[in-house]
Design a protein around this nucleic acid. Structure first.
Lengths: 204, 204
DNA sequence: CATTAAAATCGACACTGTGTAGACTTTCGG
DNA sequence: CCGAAAGTCTACACAGTGTCGATTTTAATG
């Protein structure tokens, strides 16, 4: 890997490699949509980026590494957004807002997110990224539940564990729905929101 | 594939191939646990079953086919059980019983079930098997919700859609928990049961 | 602007796993 | 006991992977 992780500080001119690297990730995303992870070959990736396999290995050590980088790019963008978004105070509003943001997220990045989920078992790096992302959500849900009056704590029927289950519910529902259509995603969102509200004791 | 699906009727002597086929599937299950799907090779499979690769291709056309057969075997066993299990009338009891059965299922077959879920995207055959299994659960959950007074119908806040979301919640929660430990699975079950009860309006 | 070290690229090679073909052996019903 | 079906093996052709050393391009610098 070239000029990677450590604070890339201010750089005068953009290295040619940076452009290529982006091209590779873009190609990766496109191929993932076209043929899926398994069918996608390192050769395809290189060809799509306009270089040979040999050259591609200069950037990424394997298909997995490339996809991991793609997931990292997407997930960072996702963290960015969640950091800069205001949190509502009133639970009902907070829930509605969170669900809407999540729908947007899946509409934009559904493909990469599904890929991340699929690979989080087999590629530890991706597993780590995704689990950190999930933790963000779980923490947020926990906070809302507690503010709505659900007992705090980590026992099976307290806020933390419930938040985890709700998070998985949303993940899986969106995973499936986002494969179908935007409408389906919207419907899934409504259902999940409803269950979340009930679980928070905000609907009777 | 040799003497497969169609009613195997009563057979005088068991074909040698039937034994071998079972051996292959058993080996497959063991290898899945040891090294996981990706790392498992057709050669490993053959070796584990005491034959050469060439011979293995007599039984299954590929690694995927073998795993599909393993999933089919497990899932059939699962359907069998759900068919012969009595359904309780009282919703609270029905929910508790269903959750307990599901815990048992995951304790026994967690590995294969996780594999099935992972591969249901990439292997259409497995996707079909698993989606049919999920439908069984969704139907059952729907019935319980309706008996508990949740409005019937397929709109996002009616029984059917809610059942689907709850099913995904359980699937995903169990998927993760069953990787950890039996205790974790039991705790996840409690949490899911709690949310199911609340969603059915039976607690609160 | 000539130099030069780093960055980027290429083609060829060795390796591993897949799936197929054809020949050989075992099993077992008639 | 004989012949067909069932089961097995070895050998091969092929795909994709990852590595290596040689070569070309880039861009900072004196």
């Amino acid at each position: 890997m070239p000029g990677r992780s450590p604070a890339r500080s201010r750089r005068a001119t953009e290295r040619k490699g940076d452009v290529r690297e982006r091209a590779i990730l873009d190609t990766c995303e496109a191929l993932l949509a076209q043929k899926g992870y398994d069918a996608m070959t390192v050769g395809d990736l290189a060809q799509g980026a306009g270089i040979t396999r040999g050259a591609l290995y200069f950037y990424f050590g394997s298909k997995q590494e490339a996809v991991t980088a793609l997931v990292a790019r997407t997930v960072e963008h996702l963290w960015e957004r969640s950091r800069t978004t205001a949190q509502a105070d009133e639970p009902r509003q907070a829930i509605a807002a969170a669900m809407q943001r999540t729908v947007d997220l899946w509409n934009e990045h559904g493909l990469v997110m599904r890929t991340a989920i699929d690979l989080s078992l087999t590629v530890p790096e991706i597993g780590e990224l995704w689990s950190r992302t999930a933790d963000l959500f779980i923490t947020a849900i926990t906070a809302v539940l507690e503010r709505a009056g659900v007992e705090a704590g980590t026992e099976p029927e307290q806020a933390s564990a419930m938040a985890r289950a709700l998070c998985w519910m949303i993940e899986r529902s969106f995973y499936h729905a986002s494969q179908e259509s935007r409408e389906e995603l919207q419907r899934a969102s409504s259902t999940c929101e409803h269950i979340w509200l009930i679980s928070a004791g905000l609907v009777g």
